[in-house]
Design a protein around this nucleic acid. Structure first.
Lengths: 189, 189
DNA sequence: TCTTATCTTAACTATTCTAGTCAGGATTAA
DNA sequence: TTAATCCTGACTAGAATAGTTAAGATAAGA
């Protein structure tokens, strides 16, 4: 019934990212996530690259780049993350709702084991599909606040400038071709 | 969140054994279990040997030998079987009740991931620790009866003589729930 | 006693999975 | 131009998984 290290690391990193976002640091470099959670950086790189390709994250390259959540934290369900990283929730394939497959049992229709495993599957889903990154972030931040602490990852990126590279989504650019912006000069105060 | 093949095969074989017992065939040779469930016999041999050493089964060697449950089916809890074969129910060690171990996370005390995984662990336990082989056997037999069938394993051993090598089948225990025998002597009528 | 059916034990193997590492490249801010 | 970042793909050591193989020990029945 194990969650893999990949899964554990991925979730921990996303949780840090969510908390950082909640504290106005929506862009976090991988190194900070890896250091805060003591995850081997090159391994985490793999994991986050995968989560980006799956649409959970966005990344900004280059100096002062990093990762951000691709959607609001309350739309990222833990169960979906676990399914993406570690596969179906059900202990055996014939008990899976989202990824049903026949098991090797000769008579699935009458199988009492299948019934109990379907109950297990639903019990897991009732937890993991109920909560989002938002929930985990809130409860963790609340615990930390009670002890007067901030998430370590936020401490680690305090010194970095806040770069507004998480540009406002260019709604019109998707519909029109527009010339690249000419550098308009700001009047100095 | 997977159950291993070992776990699946072990549970299927035990369930067959329980149903056979319920139908007055408490002693089943490995070959019948393997054939009925389409499990490689030599692999199942390994699994049952382990379950015997763990005290869930007894074995009778020699001709007309086989395996039997070592205790009444209503005392063999599915969760314990799964724990024995596949390890703790909790997805990560820091969420385990019966086998707690620190995970690699730097701040377990405030970890929201741990909380959700403890909920998952409890949800799994609430299913697997509630049901016994007796329950699974009953529901499976009921399904089979509804379709006018017997468990294949029982068909497979019909031709074998019933050898009273294990303790006499306690006829009344099937009809009444009786407490495990205590050492206190009851007055004889 | 001999044969046959059964469990016992231990070692062996092939494949896949896990948990990473490593090298080189592309992109961006300063 | 340089430093900090993400990107991609290949690589690997070790463990786990799912078995197989071989040489016994035991018991029933002829």
């Amino acid at each position: 019934m194990k969650l893999s290290k990949r899964g554990e690391y991925g979730l921990r990193a996303l949780l840090d990212l969510t908390m950082a976002h909640a504290l106005d640091r929506p862009l976090v470099p991988l190194t900070a996530l890896a250091e805060a959670q003591r995850i081997p950086a090159t391994f985490l790189e793999q994991i986050l690259a995968d989560l980006r390709q799956a649409g959970f994250l966005t990344a900004a390259r280059g100096k002062y780049g990093g990762y951000s959540l691709a959607k609001p934290a309350n739309e990222i369900v833990i169960g979906e993350l676990v399914r993406h990283i570690d596969g179906p929730l059900a202990p055996i394939s014939c008990a899976s709702v989202t990824a049903y497959g026949r098991c090797t049992c000769p008579d699935e229709e009458h199988c009492g084991l299948r019934l109990v495993m379907m109950d297990v599957r639903n019990a897991i889903s009732n937890v993991l599909d109920r909560y989002t990154l938002q929930h985990l972030s809130e409860v963790t931040l609340q615990h930390l606040r009670r002890d007067g602490l901030l998430p370590p990852v936020v401490e680690l990126i305090r010194h970095l400038p806040i770069h507004q590279r998480t540009k406002p989504v260019p709604a019109l650019e998707k519909h029109f071709h527009v010339e690249p912006k000419t550098t308009s000069k700001k009047p100095k105060p």
